[in-house]
């Protein structure tokens, strides 16, 4: 399993959740973990690839990606990005559906909040393959809003509608 990269430069704060999701999936689903890191790498390079601390961080992240790619060898989801894209999309939508079913059943808990939020992060990740489809864009928006809304309701003792 890849070690966590610390410290994350402040410029990359917005990527910390994607990197944490990568780490959480190193064993559970290495393909998902790989593409979360690739998203962080690609986005990080757009944010700042010039300052020494960011270059150092990105260089370590690239080391992790190269190692992970070697470990995954001839996996189709890695060698063919179109297969990888379908893999990440299916995984994200499964997570979204789980949370949505819990929501519709009136079962509100931390795990479903996390599922909504993780689904939104994985839908972000799909942007490494190109522009998001309108459907995925809407799913991402809904999942992120639901995660925040239910989290705030539970925190303040309210029952989500």
């Amino acid at each position: 399993m890849a070690a966590q990269l610390n410290p994350i430069p402040p410029q990359f704060k917005s990527l910390q959740h994607h990197l944490r999701t990568a780490q959480e999936h190193d064993k559970r689903d290495p393909v998902v973990a790989y593409y979360c890191r690739l998203y962080a790498m690609q986005t990080g390079m757009k944010i700042d690839s010039k300052s020494p601390e960011c270059r150092k961080f990105l260089s370590k992240l690239m080391d992790q990606l190269e190692t992970q790619k070697k470990q995954l060898g001839d996996c189709d989801s890695i060698t063919q990005e179109i297969v990888g894209s379908a893999h990440v999309e299916n995984y994200a939508l499964k997570m979204f559906l789980y949370a949505d079913n819990e929501d519709r059943a009136g079962s509100f808990h931390k795990n479903m909040i996390k599922s909504f939020y993780t689904a939104s992060l994985l839908l972000d990740t799909l942007s490494v393959f190109g522009e998001l489809t309108e459907e995925n864009f809407q799913h991402r928006k809904y999942a992120r809003w639901k995660a925040t809304y239910i989290h705030n309701c539970l925190k303040s003792g309210m029952t989500p509608e």
Partner: peptide
């Protein structure tokens, strides 16, 4: 030294871009 520093930074940036392209089999 300023221009040397800029040049080093730019080379490292290119290196990252090239590694990313290789990783994604885009070279």
């Amino acid at each position: 030294t300023g221009s040397v520093g800029t040049s080093v930074a730019s080379t490292e940036q290119d290196d990252l871009s090239q590694r990313l392209a290789r990783l994604r089999d885009q070279v």
